[in-house]
Amino acid sequence: MKLITAIIKPFKLDDVKNALNAFGITGMTVSEAMGFGRTRGHTEVYRGAEYTIDLIPKIRLEVVVDSADAEKVIDVIVKAASTGAIGDGKVWSVPVDHIVRVRTGERGVDAI
């Protein structure tokens, strides 16, 4: 099993969610995040004083999938989240050792 984490632009959340639903993904966790990559935030000016705002708002989306589906799910997210402009975000995956559905006690792929 793999945990796929995607950092995406907030306005792309609906597109990514719909694409994952269409692919057959039934659950995900979404949180608001602040961060920066190569874009390095933006500049604001107040009465001539410049402020560099490094951290800009992003969405962090997490989903656990069967290892066999991981590459395809990553492709789905990347395709749906892309605008072609800088600041589109990142997607990565890491191995998951255990997963348990709390209500039933099911383990492994059945618990996804």
């Binding site: 004083a49 410049e50 402020y51 560099t52």
Partner: peptide, 10 residues
Amino acid sequence: RFLSNFTSNN
């Protein structure tokens, strides 16, 4: 919370 966020360019 985001104080480290604001750095001066002046």
